[in-house]
Design a protein around this nucleic acid. Structure first.
Length: 220
DNA sequence: GGTTGATCATGG
DNA sequence: CCATGATCAACC
């Protein structure tokens, strides 16, 4: 088996590609693509996602849009243990620290990213060497009415705080399904935001993440 | 043991 | 610096 040379033309093509690699390990996929799998992910945290992008035919490099723009599908690998338990939160997108007028849940980047997601579980237990970590069966997900309502509520609460100049009161404990945490190369990174008096302040860059309890219900 | 806050690599 | 891909590890 070899990695595809072109993007999938239909969602069914994408699903078939994902199902074809289910049951294989990162070592298998790396060997067939002539890519060395790191001993650990301490310095290669995005390796699994990038390897899966290659094997599913996603366009290379980082893009602010979905992984499969033609299909309107975002790809997310999700680390699980051998019992199927989700091990980590899921990064969604950058959290804007200044909210443009007219920004709503409906046109937000969070909703855009989460409108349709192909979740691919991958063993992520740190006791398992990366080469032995197995790919699971893919789950193509669209938020149902209830999930959408929860996401919308969390997004509106968090976005309102940012709009009101209260970004520095936001902690990761806020939000049932969606929360905000720092997202940067290190603690020295700073970006502009609005302070409580409407002034410009400097704050740590943030990202939106899905809680494990939320993604666990999707993977089941 | 689970969560929060910090961090790593890469490309534009 | 921002945004992509995430996991690490200190702390509660």
């Amino acid at each position: 088996m070899r990695p595809p040379h072109s993007p999938p033309q239909h969602a069914t093509d994408l699903i078939q590609r994902a199902e074809a690699i289910a049951g294989l390990t990162l070592g298998d996929l790396g060997a067939m693509a002539n890519i060395v799998v790191p001993e650990n992910f301490k310095r290669h945290k995005g390796f699994t996602g990038q390897l899966l992008e290659l094997w599913l035919g996603a366009s290379a490099g980082s893009k602010p849009q979905q992984d499969f723009p033609e299909l309107g599908i975002e790809l997310k690998t999700i680390p699980i243990d051998s019992s199927g338990k989700v091990l980590e939160t899921t990064y969604v997108c950058f959290a804007h620290t200044q909210i443009k007028l007219g920004t709503t849940w409906e046109n937000s980047s969070v909703r855009n990213k989460l409108s349709q997601v192909l979740f691919i579980p991958v063993l992520g237990d740190r006791a398992i060497p990366p080469v032995d970590r197995m790919i699971g069966m893919p789950v193509l997900w669209q938020p149902n009415e209830q999930e959408n309502a929860v996401l919308k509520q969390d997004w509106e609460e968090l976005t309102e705080r940012i709009s009101l100049g209260q970004i520095d009161t936001i902690t990761a404990t806020m939000g049932q399904a969606l929360h905000i945490r720092p997202k940067a190369a290190d603690g020295s990174a700073l970006t502009d935001a609005i302070g409580s008096e409407g002034e410009t302040i400097q704050t740590r860059p943030r990202g939106f993440y899905l809680r494990k309890t939320f993604t666990q219900n999707i993977i089941r």
